[in-house]
Simulated assay, not measured.
Amino acid sequence: MDAIYRTQRHIYDLTRKYYLLGRDRLIAGLRPPPKGAVLEVGCGTGRNLVSAARAWPQARLHGFDISRAMLETATVAVRRAGLAHRVRLAQGDATGFDPRAMFGRKDFDRIFFSYTLSMIPGWREAISASIDVLAPGGAIHIVDFGQQERLPRWWRAMLFAWLGRFSVRPRADLRSILAMLAEDHGLTLDFKPLYRGYAWSAVLRRPKAR
């Protein structure tokens, strides 16, 4: 990942602004509880964490990424936004991470994946790892590329070919895997196609403790 993003990180947010649709919608829907802990898995440049911190000023923000180069950019972005006291960053692997070692806590009220599952080879394991650290009453929010199901075939072929150049692979079985995990872990699933299937949005929710 460092090899991919060592140079791309400097133009990442500018170039992704127009086609990573649904990110701000996800952030607006987080609605963490007062002083709730929010975690972004694969935080990249820190763009989403800064936006989430501004949208939810009472929340405590955390993010990690496997790429040290991206974390360097995220650290600068957080400091420039004056949010270093509220946003904590760490390096880690989404498929298996220890929140106590990284952030000194065992769970999170909100966890989100923004266009990261299509880049993580072990994406199923990444979701499972996040379920393991989801607090009672918490939710995992996901937005990523859909299957372009209501868009022209030529568009889908062109987009997927272009994404493949960057090792991005939209997950055709995302909905079925999420449904299986929801059933296995006693969660509820809300799944919605966005923008005629350009993107898919999903929320896994854990019931509150009795």
Rank of each mutant, 00 (worst) to 15 (best):
L21E: 04
D144C: 07
P121F: 00
T7C: 06
I127R: 05
L178N: 11
E149W: 06
S130K: 08
M1R: 12
L151D: 01
E125D: 07
R210W: 07
S67I: 06
T75W: 08
M1A: 13
T73Q: 15
R150T: 01
R80W: 02
G92M: 13
S167H: 14
T15L: 11
F160R: 01
S114W: 02
K35T: 05
C43L: 14
L174N: 07
A101S: 10
L117Y: 02
T7A: 13
A129L: 00
R110M: 10
G63H: 01
L163G: 00
R25D: 02
R110D: 09
D93R: 08
V50Q: 08
A182Q: 13
L194C: 04
C43A: 15
A157I: 04
M70S: 08
A126I: 06
R156V: 01
F97G: 12
S128Q: 04
A139T: 02
D65H: 11
R124C: 08
R206C: 13
E149M: 12
R86I: 06
A28E: 13
P207K: 09
M119H: 02
V143G: 10
M119W: 00
Y19N: 07
R156C: 00
Y18G: 15
P152S: 03
Y18M: 14
I177E: 14
R100G: 05
P99T: 08
P170T: 09
N48A: 14
D13P: 00
T75L: 12
L20F: 12
I140E: 00
R6M: 04
M158D: 11
R210M: 06
V133D: 01
A209S: 11
V87H: 05
Y12L: 09
L204C: 06
A81I: 10
P57C: 11
Y5L: 04
I27S: 04
A37C: 08
A52L: 00
A74T: 05
V168G: 00
A84R: 08
I177P: 09
I120F: 04
H85N: 04
L178I: 13
P193L: 05
F166T: 03
A59D: 13
Q91R: 14
L181S: 11
N48V: 08
A55E: 15
I131N: 00
L30N: 10
Q148N: 12
Y198I: 04
R171V: 12
D24H: 12
V143L: 11
A202W: 00
I111G: 00
G82I: 09
L194F: 07
W155E: 11
W162H: 10
S176G: 14
L181N: 10
D107G: 02
H185M: 04
H10V: 09
A161I: 06
G146T: 03
P193R: 10
R16P: 03
